[in-house]
Amino acid sequence: MAERRDSAPVIVLLAAGESRRFGGIKQLADIDGETMVHRAARTALATGVALIVVTGANAGQVGAALSDLPLHIVHHAGWADGMGSSLAAGIRYVVDRYPQATGALLCLADQPLLRTACYTRMLARHRQKPDRILATEQHGVAGPPTLFPQDCLTELMHWSGDRGAQALLRRENDRVESFTWQGIIDVDSPDDLKLARSQLAANRLD
């Protein structure tokens, strides 16, 4: 895949977890005839922005599910150290391969109902205010998808353990802008998957 090095953000999709709560390979769960990780990656790619997928547990199977898409896979051998560690692996790749990137849009493979329009709105706001941190708010808590500007990347590339980006979001609260999207579901359990499938079916009937 040709590497893009222009001045734009890069999307980092985290798909490295073991899915212990789910009881199977969550990334490969079927969503409307498509694996969840493929759906998430395809949705992100529709923005036209370069995409990096961080894999870890079950990397071979997850990577195979993405083999038809124009993206770059970063296998993180230390995935068991936690999401913060996987996030850092993706950010290190951004800093190394996309030195002109204006930021990184962090998203998760287990939010299958997100639409491309969510990402494009955040990317458009980033072009207007490239110094802002753009986060998605759920139940009063800011989290992914989150677009971190360039000046945050050095810190994030050294992240470790189970830390998400909450500490950074709290510290930089004055420049965090929150977005709210309808119907976001984080698939952490089989019941969440059933809910996501039901909501997707209901949306098609609207």
Rank of each mutant, 00 (worst) to 15 (best):
Q27Y: 15
K26H: 10
G60L: 13
E18Y: 14
M36I: 09
A57H: 13
L66N: 08
A57M: 08
L51H: 08
Q27E: 15
A29W: 15
I25D: 04
A40L: 12
V49G: 05
T47D: 08
E34I: 02
E18Q: 11
A59V: 08
I31N: 00
V62H: 06
E18W: 14
S19N: 12
G56W: 07
A41H: 13
G17L: 09
I52D: 02
G60K: 11
A64F: 14
A16T: 01
A40D: 02
R21E: 04
A65T: 05
F22L: 03
D32Q: 03
T47K: 09
E18P: 06
A65L: 06
V37F: 13
G33S: 04
V62C: 05
T55F: 05
R21G: 00
E18S: 03
A59H: 10
A57V: 06
T47H: 08
L51W: 12
T55H: 04
Q27A: 07
D32E: 12
A46P: 07
V53P: 06
A59S: 10
V53S: 02
E34D: 08
V62N: 04
V62K: 09
A64E: 15
T43P: 09
T43D: 12
A50N: 08
S19T: 03
A41E: 08
T47C: 13
V62W: 12
G63N: 08
T55E: 09
A65R: 03
I52T: 05
A59E: 14
V53D: 03
G33A: 07
K26N: 00
G24L: 08
L66P: 10
D30W: 10
A44E: 03
L28M: 07
V37W: 15
A46M: 14
V53W: 14
A65F: 13
H38M: 04
N58C: 10
V62P: 11
R39G: 00
S19W: 15
M36P: 00
G56Y: 07
L45W: 14
A44T: 04
F22V: 00
A59Q: 13
G63E: 13
I52Q: 01
M36Q: 01
A64K: 02
A40T: 07
G23K: 12
I52F: 15
K26W: 13
V37G: 02
G63W: 09
T55D: 10
R21V: 03
T43Y: 12
H38K: 01
A59W: 07
N58Q: 11
Q27W: 14
G60S: 06
A41I: 13
R21D: 01
A59G: 11
V62Q: 11
A50M: 10
D30F: 10
R21W: 12
L28S: 00
A65M: 09
L28I: 01
L28F: 03
G33Q: 00
M36G: 00
V54D: 06
M36F: 14
S19F: 15
S19I: 01
G17I: 08
T47P: 07
A64V: 05
I25T: 04
G63F: 07
V54K: 06
I31E: 01
G48C: 07
A44V: 02
H38A: 12
G48I: 02
L66Q: 04
A16P: 04
D30K: 04
L45S: 05
G24P: 07
V49T: 13
N58H: 12
G24E: 11
G33M: 01
R20T: 05
L66E: 06
M36V: 02
A44K: 07
A57E: 09
G24F: 09
G48L: 13
G48A: 09
